[in-house]
Design a protein around this nucleic acid. Structure first.
Lengths: 120, 120
DNA sequence: TGTCATGGTTACCAAAAAGGTACTGTGTTT
DNA sequence: AAACACAGTACCTTTTTGGTAACCATGACA
């Protein structure tokens, strides 16, 4: 008689299934920019134009896109001031702040890796 | 007089430039499978066919590709036994093991996120 | 009157990542 | 003689991601 393989419990998030928390985390902050954006916002609240300066090698489009996704995922708060010219401030939500320890470790680990690679 | 923007120090790794350790880390383990692969190998050394069973929703090709990259990056060790049928064992290198704390945090964070999302 | 600054949006295109199918070699078993 | 097991490789297609360029609205400023 056939049985299912070890029946791993799946996690469901917005109609997608993940086998493990790592996959969820990567889905939320694994893109090319998201982790860095969170990292910068963890230091200080920033306006859109501040972010543009920090991420001068990306485009408005990518920034907006990433920020909107982070907002949808509840990690970033977007505050619009009704004035002209427009002013929009981005900051981390409480939930967004909980990811800080991971970012810190990632930052250190990456630096160490590069350092180690330089002494062959 | 014009001056360069805040002149961030860049990190170079195999001809690519990164602005921060996070980007390096994501470049190394940010794919769809790599972090999970490392996570599983951290628990135990596995044969290729073991990995295939664990990652039954990907293909041999993807697995090989990811494993080869992890090997090139010095995170995974590949041991070939000269026998037929072939036997190849994958394990973490010392450097590979150093990423374990990050994976652990990512795993927990992802699970918590999903849990929190279920109680709206 | 014309230009600038801010914070976008949209349409379109290119590159990278992921996925699918088929094929390989070779000892051992049936 | 045929089929199997394992660990791949080759070639091609699809999906996802990233990038370019152009456009918008509004008030301030020259």
């Amino acid at each position: 008689m056939q049985q299912d393989q070890a029946a791993v419990e799946l996690m469901t998030l917005r109609d997608r299934e993940y086998k493990c928390g790592i996959d969820v985390t990567l889905a939320l902050v694994g893109g090319k920019w998201k982790a860095s954006i969170l990292w910068h916002l963890a230091q200080e609240t920033m306006r859109f134009s501040d972010l543009q300066r920090q991420f001068s090698d990306t485009t408005r489009k990518m920034l907006t896109q990433q920020l909107r996704e982070l907002e949808t995922d509840g990690l970033v708060h977007r505050k619009v001031y009704p004035q002209v010219p427009p002013k929009v401030e981005y900051s981390l939500t409480d939930q967004g702040r909980t990811i800080f320890p991971i970012l810190e470790l990632m930052c250190d680990w990456g630096r160490n890796y590069v350092q180690a690679a330089r002494l062959p």
